[in-house]
Amino acid sequence: MTNGSLRLNNGVDMPSVGLGVFQSPPDVTAGAVKAALHVGYRLIDTAAAYGNEPQVGEGLRDGDASRDEVFVETKVWINDYGYEATQHAFEKASGKLGVEQIDLLLLHQPLTSAFDRTLDAYRALEKLLADGKVRAIGVSNFMEDKLTRLLSETDVVPAVNQIELHPYFQQKALQEFHGAHGILTQAWSPIGGITSYGGAQKRTFDDPTLTEIGHAYGKTTAQVMLRWHLQEGRCAIPKSVKSARIAENFDVFDFELNDDELAAIDNLDTGIRGGPDPDSITLENYSVEIPEA
Rank of each mutant, 00 (worst) to 15 (best):
L128H: 01
P167V: 11
L43G: 06
I246F: 00
G18Q: 02
T118R: 14
G4Y: 07
I78T: 09
L106W: 06
K239D: 05
D269V: 09
N10V: 11
S280P: 02
T2H: 04
V288K: 13
I183E: 02
Q186Y: 01
G199S: 04
A264K: 12
G51C: 14
E292T: 10
E73G: 08
G214D: 12
V224F: 08
Q223A: 09
E84R: 14
F205V: 15
E164I: 05
D251R: 05
F90T: 03
Y197Q: 10
Y217W: 06
G198M: 02
Q171P: 11
S240W: 00
G214W: 04
D145T: 15
L129Y: 15
D80F: 07
T221M: 09
V56I: 00
E84S: 12
V139S: 07
S24L: 10
A114K: 13
K133L: 15
R135A: 13
Q23E: 13
G275R: 09
E212M: 11
D68M: 13
S140P: 06
N79M: 13
L6G: 05
S66G: 15
V160N: 08
S5T: 15
E100R: 13
N3I: 11
E232I: 13
G198S: 03
N141E: 14
E164S: 05
K202V: 15
S24M: 09
V17Q: 04
G4T: 10
E289G: 08
K202Q: 14
A30K: 03
A244W: 04
I191D: 00
S140R: 04
A121C: 00
A264P: 07
G63V: 00
T46W: 03
K146T: 14
G233Q: 10
K146C: 10
R67Q: 05
G98H: 03
A36K: 02
R149F: 08
A187T: 02
K242P: 02
A136R: 08
E144I: 15
L8P: 10
A85E: 14
A124L: 06
L129C: 09
H229S: 03
P190W: 00
G31H: 03
Q170S: 10
A49R: 14
